[in-house]
Nucleic acid binder design. Structure first.
Lengths: 242, 242
DNA sequence: GTCTATAGCCGGATAGAC
DNA sequence: GTCTATCCGGCTATAGAC
């Protein structure tokens, strides 16, 4: 992916068996803090000083691990893309349209619940024209959507669901689920709650699942509920510290 | 609305009968340019010099009409909110659920098509926690949603549509329609087109309308198509130049 | 009312001690 | 590998000529 193409690191598996672990931990610590700050204020509005404070580190330490603010931002995005892509594995693994789409929507809602900052950083990047991940969108994401769309088109052809353009179905599902992270402020304001907690998310998830399944002509009630456990968040060294 | 509460202008109707018109025009010119620049880079990333260039004016001229960058930003938001609220008038004016919801979705899709920058500025503001329009969301918007939701709840009670929480239906419709403005970059990348033109929007609109109506259990085919004319954009002096 | 020139601040990046 | 002190560029805002 172009976003991280420049991050071919010098890190070798043979080198630094213990020090590498420390570096990994520090980088993860910084990335987590950076994600929060970038989510709240965007790239331009974020200050390295704030990220350092959030990571409980002196500012120059950040520049030791990440060449520049932009390199740090790209590393954050690379982490997010990895998480994002993993979610789509769920679809088409299942043979039943209702079960597969239901699982996918629930997975996306869990993502919005547990990684709202990641979602917001991603949203911010796209709204501003995807200057860093445009290549990823045109290559990897486009290919992935075309692959998944083929499965859905097959269901449509078999009359197992209502006729629709699978690509627009994806846009709709992404929008409906990610809005509970990206637009949480607005939703909280309208609902009159201080924050979206477990109850609100459970209710929202059921509404979205029903809306999507009915919208796809899948009214049957298989409703296989999936564990609400927090997905494990791996923080690989992808694209870190250019 | 708190966003513009401080903008009680000294402008009196008695003063400057002709100059006021000029001022109005210049302000509109600046606001339009500011909307574009804020949409592309966010508040922090936007530079007054860029806005001035986009408005074809020298930079200090902006400060003559708007006290500060933040005041200009708030004026842009005030314009957007006015447009945004106007769209909701469509709902509940109609007695038929399918027609009313169909009209509303189409109106929102037209908004995304003709005012994508307005949508993006709004999205950006919300993603970052709505620091300027939080009050508006908790007051005016909350009240409006509650009013409109009552109408939808009545339809549900009368078994004229599927049972659902109207508030989450609004969140879903907003998300699905606004994504064609806010996430246009992603959609263009996945569809493999350079830009979302009339054809893409027409197709997207039909998909979203069908998805929403089916999702609400409104499969009937009234499909009253509405004029695709561009809504007139009024640019009132609301909140401009503190 | 318009615009040139500049003040003053803020934030990313680094030099160099430890 | 860590952190203090500082540099330098860029941006908002304004002073003041026209």
């Amino acid at each position: 992916m172009p976003a991280t193409a420049s991050s071919a690191r010098s890190e070798r598996p043979e080198a630094a068996p213990k020090k590498g672990g420390i570096r990994r931990a520090k980088e993860a610590q910084i990335l987590r803090a950076a994600e929060r700050v970038f989510a709240r204020t965007g790239f331009a509005g974020a200050r390295m000083a704030d990220i350092a404070a959030a990571a409980r580190l002196p500012k120059p330490n950040l520049h030791y691990y990440f060449r520049s603010k932009r390199a740090l931002y790209r590393a954050v995005l690379a982490n997010i893309l990895e998480l994002w892509l993993a979610e789509t594995d769920i679809i088409a693994a299942d043979a039943d349209p209702a079960a597969a789409l239901g699982h996918y929507v629930r997975a996306k809602m869990r993502f919005s619940r547990f990684y709202p900052d990641a979602s917001r950083v991603f949203a911010n990047e796209i709204i501003h024209g995807a200057p860093e991940i445009g290549g990823f969108l045109r290559q990897e994401l486009k290919a992935l959507v075309e692959r998944k769309s083929a499965a859905i088109s097959a269901w449509v052809a078999e009359r197992r669901m209502a006729p629709l353009d699978p690509r627009h179905l994806f846009f709709a599902i992404w929008a409906m689920t990610q809005t509970y992270a990206d637009f949480a402020t607005q939703i909280e304001a309208v609902l009159g709650v201080p924050a979206l907690g477990e109850d609100e998310f459970a209710a929202a998830t059921e509404e979205v699942v029903r809306l999507v399944l009915r919208g796809c002509g899948l009214d049957g009630a298989p409703k296989s509920r999936v564990s609400a456990a927090r997905p494990s968040r791996r923080r690989p060294p992808v694209g870190s510290s250019g």
